[in-house]
Design a protein around this nucleic acid. Structure first.
Length: 585
RNA sequence: GAGGGAUUAGUGUAAUGGUAGCACGAGGGUUUCUGAUACCCUUAGUAAGAGUUCAAAUCUCUUAUCCCUUACCA
C-alpha cells in the first residue's frame, strides 16, 4: 500500500508557493486568493468556457478565496444585454456562484481614463492620428522592426488635449487612438506601441452615450483585475504573448508611485483551452451556424453551447466531471467527444429513472392471451424504476394482448447470436411475460407489420418459470422493451448525430461548413411511450434544473424538450447507451 | 526568415534527478430481467539524437513536429 499523494496541477503549485511566501498577504493566508471569469457579452458560453469557469471558480473555492464574474464589456459594437443574461443563466445552471455583485469593466471606465491621462503625463502614451492602415504598416512584420509614428514625440500637452477631445466625442471613429509609448523594435508585436483607446461613437449597453472612447483589451484587462484585487488572472495560451504588456501597463501606472500608492499587480497565468474532436469552439463558427439557420438557434441540441447541452439533457455535473477530468496543462490537447458522453452516461446511469419507449414500433399480438382469462383484460406489472437504486421504487405497467415492440428487436431470419425475437424464439418482455413467436405478418414490401406470440403465464413479472420435472429451469437470452398498444402515447423524438463529420471541422478546406454532417438530426414522429411520461407521476424524481430526464430502457437517455406541448410531447435523445451488440455487427 | 509555448500508452493526465503510475478507450471474461450497469483480466508509452550524472521523462545542447502572435476584437 502506497499512500495516495494529492496531485497538484501547475497553477495550484504556483498558488501554494505564493501562499507560503506571503506574496499576496500574510504568509499562510489562503483567503486572499482571488480569481475571476471575464466573458465578453457577445455570444453564448460554450463548453470551453466551462473549463475556464471550473478552473478559476474551483481554485477560489479550494483556497477559500473570492471568485468574480466580470463582464468584459469594452466593445459596444458587438455586445448585447441578451448575452449578459444568457451567461449569468449558464453560470447558475453550472452551479457556479460568484462572490458579491456581478462586475462590469464598464464600471471602471472612469478610473481607467484617469490612469491613461497619467501615462500621457509621464510620457508613456501619446495620441496618434495615423490611419489604421498606417498603424498596421508601421507595426512591421514578424522578424522585422516597426517604424515610429510621426506623432510619437508630440508634446504631452497636445496628447492630453486631443485625448480629452476623443473622450468628449469631438473626434470621428478611426481618426485618432491613444497608444502606449513602448518601442517599435520589440520582437513581440504586441509591445510595439499598442493601442490603448480607440474612438467608438456608439452607445454602450450599460453606459449609454457617456463614452466615445473605449479601452482595448490589453490596456483594460489587467486594470480590471487590479481594481478587483484578482491575484491570479487565468487565461488561455494565446495570451502568453500579451503577458509582458499586461505587466507593462501596471508597472507604468506604478512608475513614480510610492509603495502605498501603487496599484495591485495580479499575476497572469495561461493554460491550454479545451478542444473536442468533431466540434469547433470558435464563437464565429457558432454564430455563422445560427445566423445562416444551419441549426435551430444558439441552444440547438447539436451545438456545444452550454445552453444547447442543457437543452439536450446533459447534466451540469457531467460537464463538470468532464472538464475536471481534462486537467490543467499547457498542452494543446484534443479531447475525444466520447469522453464527454461517458461522463454524461456515468451521471445519468446513477440518477435517471427508467422508462420504456418504442421508437420504431411493430405490433406484437399474444394469441393465447384469451386462453388464460378475459381476452380484453390488462394485468398490471411492477416496472422497476432503477435496477440499482430501490429507493426509486416501481411504477405500474399495464400488460395486455396487444403491445408494441421495437422493429430492431425482431428478425425474420435471425443469426444465432441474435438474442431477441424471431420465429420460434422466446424472449422476456421487460417486467412482463415471456413470449415465444410462432408467426408474423408482412406488408407488400416485406416489411414486418405484426408479430404473433404465445405467452407463458408462469413467467409473470418477467420471472423465470418453475423448474421442470428434472429440476431444470428454462432460460431466455434476451429481454426486450415494450409498451401497451392501447395506452401508449404518440410522441416526437429527436435523435442527434454529430454536427460535423470531420474530427477538426474546416481543417481540410478552410470552411467548416464543408464538414457539416447532413444527417445530424432525425425526427421520429410516431414513437410510442408509457403514459406516465406524459401524465407525470407524483413520485417522479425532480431534477434541480427542472428538466425531466429518463433512461428509455435499452435505447438511451432522453429528456423532455422545451418544445413539448400537452398535445405533443417532444423528447431529445441525450445519448445512446453503450451497445456492444451494434459494435460487433 | 522573428518571437513565444508545447511534446509521456490510442486519448487525456501523473511522476519536479532515484520502482514510469492513473483514468478513459480497445480486447477478453464474470454477473445480470437493459447486448446497459457493476466487477475482473489484458493491452500499450517518455518525439529523435547527443551530453552531464552512480542514476535522466525530469538538467544541457541539437534536430523534428505541433500550436500561438502580424485587429482601432477579446
Amino acid at each position: 500500500m502506497t499512500e495516495a499523494v494529492e496531485q497538484r496541477h501547475f497553477i495550484q503549485q504556483i498558488i501554494d508557493a505564493d501562499i507560503e511566501s506571503g506574496k499576496w498577504g500574510p504568509p499562510g493566508d489562503r483567503s486572499v486568493i482571488t480569481t475571476r471569469f471575464p466573458p465578453e457579452p457577445n455570444g453564448y458560453l460554450h463548453i470551453g468556457h466551462a473549463k475556464a469557469i471550473h478552473i478559476s471558480h474551483g481554485l477560489a473555492r479550494e483556497y477559500g478565496g473570492k471568485f468574480n464574474l466580470r463582464f468584459d464589456d469594452t466593445n459596444p459594437a458587438k455586445e448585447e444585454v441578451e448575452f449578459v443574461e444568457s451567461i449569468k443563466r449558464d453560470l447558475e445552471w453550472l452551479g457556479t456562484k460568484w462572490d458579491g455583485e456581478v462586475c462590469f469593466a464598464s464600471d471602471y471606465f472612469g478610473q481607467m481614463y484617469d490612469w491613461a491621462v497619467e501615462l500621457i503625463e509621464k510620457g508613456l502614451a501619446y495620441v496618434d492620428e495615423s490611419t489604421p492602415e498606417q498603424i498596421r504598416e508601421m507595426r512591421g512584420k514578424v522578424g522585422h522592426a516597426g517604424t515610429d509614428s510621426p506623432f510619437r514625440d508630440r508634446p504631452v500637452s497636445e496628447s492630453v488635449d486631443l485625448f480629452a477631445k476623443m473622450k468628449a466625442g469631438e473626434i470621428e471613429n478611426g481618426k485618432m487612438v491613444l497608444r502606449a509609448k513602448i518601442g517599435m523594435d520589440s520582437t513581440n508585436l504586441n509591445m510595439r506601441d499598442p493601442v490603448m483607446y480607440r474612438v467608438v461613437n456608439a452607445p454602450h449597453h450599460r453606459t449609454g452615450d457617456q463614452w466615445h472612447i473605449y479601452p482595448m483589451y490589453d490596456w483594460a484587462h489587467g486594470l480590471e483585475d487590479s481594481i478587483e484585487g484578482v491575484t491570479h488572472s487565468l487565461c488561455s495560451l494565446e495570451f502568453q504573448d500579451h503577458r509582458p504588456l499586461y505587466d507593462w501597463f501596471i508597472d507604468a501606472i506604478n512608475q513614480d508611485r510610492s509603495d502605498d500608492d501603487a496599484i495591485h499587480h495580479p499575476q497572469q497565468i495561461e493554460f491550454s483551452r479545451l478542444a473536442i474532436s468533431y466540434t469547433n469552439m470558435s464563437k464565429r463558427y457558432m454564430r455563422q451556424l445560427v445566423e445562416e439557420n444551419r441549426v435551430d438557434g444558439w441552444d440547438d441540441p447539436r451545438m456545444i453551447t452550454l445552453a444547447s447541452f442543457r437543452r439536450r439533457g446533459y447534466t451540469p455535473e457531467s460537464i463538470k466531471d468532464f472538464v475536471v477530468g481534462v486537467g490543467v496543462t499547457k498542452f494543446n490537447a484534443m479531447m475525444d467527444m466520447g469522453r464527454l458522453e461517458g461522463a454524461l452516461r456515468d451521471d445519468l446511469n446513477k440518477r435517471a429513472p427508467r422508462r420504456m419507449a418504442v421508437l420504431d414500433p411493430i405490433k406484437l399480438i399474444i394469441t393465447n392471451w384469451g386462453e388464460h382469462g378475459d381476452e380484453s383484460r390488462t394485468e398490471t406489472m411492477a416496472g422497476i424504476n432503477h435496477p440499482k437504486d430501490e429507493t426509486l421504487g416501481t411504477r405500474p405497467l399495464n400488460f395486455a394482448k396487444e403491445l408494441y415492440i421495437e422493429r430492431d428487436d425482431f428478425m425474420i431470419d435471425p443469426p444465432k447470436k441474435f438474442f431477441r425475437l424471431g420465429p420460434d424464439r422466446e424472449v422476456r418482455l421487460r417486467c412482463g411475460y415471456w413470449v415465444k413467436c410462432h408467426d408474423f405478418k408482412t406488408d407488400g414490401d416485406g416489411k414486418v407489420t405484426e408479430v404473433y406470440c404465445t405467452y407463458d403465464p408462469h413467467t409473470k413479472g418477467g420471472n423465470n418459470p418453475p423448474a421442470d420435472s428434472e429440476g431444470k429451469v428454462r432460460k431466455v437470452k434476451g429481454t426486450i422493451h415494450w409498451v401497451n398498444a392501447n395506452e401508449a402515447v404518440d410522441v416526437e423524438v429527436r435523435l442527434f448525430d454529430r454536427l460535423y463529420n470531420a474530427e477538426r471541422p474546416g481543417k481540410k478546406t478552410g470552411d467548416h461548413l464543408d464538414d457539416l454532417n447532413p444527417d445530424s438530426l432525425h425526427v421520429v414522429t410516431n414513437a410510442k411511450v408509457e403514459p406516465c411520461l406524459v401524465e407525470q407521476m407524483s413520485d417522479e424524481p425532480k431534477w434541480p434544473d427542472g428538466i425531466r430526464r429518463f433512461q428509455f430502457e435499452r435505447l438511451g437517455y432522453f429528456c423532455v424538450d422545451s418544445d413539448s406541448t400537452r398535445e405533443k410531447m417532444v423528447f431529445n435523445r441525450t445519448a445512446t447507451l453503450r451497445d456492444s451488440w451494434a459494435k460487433k455487427s
